[in-house]
């Protein structure tokens, strides 16, 4: 009894801590994104609220919370309000199995990777509900794009992850990290560069980030699936986007970049540094590239990533069998 209670208490702390990580990192990420955008465009970015505008995101969050929740006439009440919650809710279980440090894992499960892949699928459902429930044609187009995109890109993503799982022989993220060593040539990216590339492209696409931000493509679909959302409805989608970025980058770090394994600094800091490097690259992409067209997006997936992922998977399997 006491052991189970202990376990439960531990999980509770983990959930609360994860929620805190999500909230704080979202604030940091949004600030980072604006600053990077600003400096790339040779302007300062947010500058007025707080020193160098650090409190700008907080001010924006307060503004979003203060807005009246508004549902357009003819929108489906249940779907419309459920969608943003459903978009954000999976963020917690997604972050639980991730090993932030040698002993910093919220939920040590053997099938951690499966858990993450399973819960990440909910996002597509949320976008679909938002698009359909809004009773808006732009949103509908956005939702249709979101579903096709998520479903398509999940497959090569899965394959690249599987190649790593083949090599390490486990689906437990902590064990995958432990399998790798502290130096870069010990990391999985060294043995699986192609898988990492595929994973990263798919991760950007899965999180609907530019240049794959077609479901919201504001120059085409005004705002895509969240056209009709304002206030906290929009805020939750926004939060979900950044949390998803955090999740995919954490998984990438754990799978390919040796997780917390690195010399000199304590593991937790290394993990953070690696995550934020990946996040910076994703942000950098957004402020550099034009958007793909929808058919090009799917072509890239089905004609390039999928065959490459498959080949990589088979190659890995073959090599594992031989050696």
């Amino acid at each position: 009894m006491s052991y189970e209670f202990h376990r439960f208490f531990y999980l509770l702390i983990a959930v609360v801590a994860t929620a805190a990580v999500v909230a704080v990192s979202a604030l940091i990420l949004i600030y980072l994104e604006r600053k990077v955008a600003g400096h790339v465009q040779r302007r300062p970015g947010p500058f007025e609220v707080g020193p160098h505008g650090v409190l700008q995101t907080v001010a924006d969050a307060l503004k979003l919370m203060g807005k009246q929740p508004f549902r357009p006439d003819g929108a489906d009440r249940l779907l419309f309000w459920l969608a943003p919650i459903l978009a954000f809710a999976p963020a917690l279980p997604l972050l639980l199995p991730i090993p932030f440090g040698p002993v910093l894992t919220g939920l040590e499960v053997n099938l951690g990777l499966i858990l993450i892949l399973a819960f990440s699928g909910i996002n597509a459902l949320a976008l679909c509900m938002a698009g359909w429930g809004s009773n808006n044609k732009w949103a509908l187009l956005g939702a249709a794009r979101a579903v096709a995109q998520s479903v398509g890109y999940e497959i090569p993503l899965l394959m690249s992850v599987l190649s790593v799982a083949f090599m390490t022989g486990t689906l437990n993220l902590s064990k995958i990290v432990a399998y790798q060593g502290p130096w870069p040539w010990h990391w999985n990216i060294f043995t699986q560069p192609l898988a990492f590339l595929i994973y990263f492209v798919c991760a950007v696409a899965e999180t609907n980030r530019a240049p794959f931000d077609l479901p919201e493509a504001e120059s085409e679909l005004t705002a895509g699936f969240h056209t009709e959302y304002s206030g906290m409805g929009f805020g939750l989608f926004f939060l979900a986007e950044y949390t998803n970025m955090l999740v995919v980058c954490s998984v990438a770090t754990a799978l390919f970049l040796g997780g917390w394994q690195a010399p000199f600094l304590p593991g937790f800091w290394w993990f953070l540094i690696k995550i934020y490097l990946l996040l910076l690259i994703i942000i950098w992409f957004r402020w550099t590239f034009p958007r793909l067209r929808f058919d090009q997006l799917l072509n890239l997936n089905w004609k390039w990533l999928l065959p490459l992922g498959l080949a990589n998977l088979m190659g890995t399997a073959l090599l594992m069998k031989i050696f």
């Binding site: 790339v40 465009q41 040779r42 530019a210 240049p211 957004r286 402020w287 034009p290 958007r291």
Partner: peptide, 13 residues
């Protein structure tokens, strides 16, 4: 044009 195509930075340059 680039803004239409989804690239935000060129217009600033």
């Amino acid at each position: 044009l680039l803004l239409d195509l989804g690239a935000f930075t060129p217009i600033m340059y």
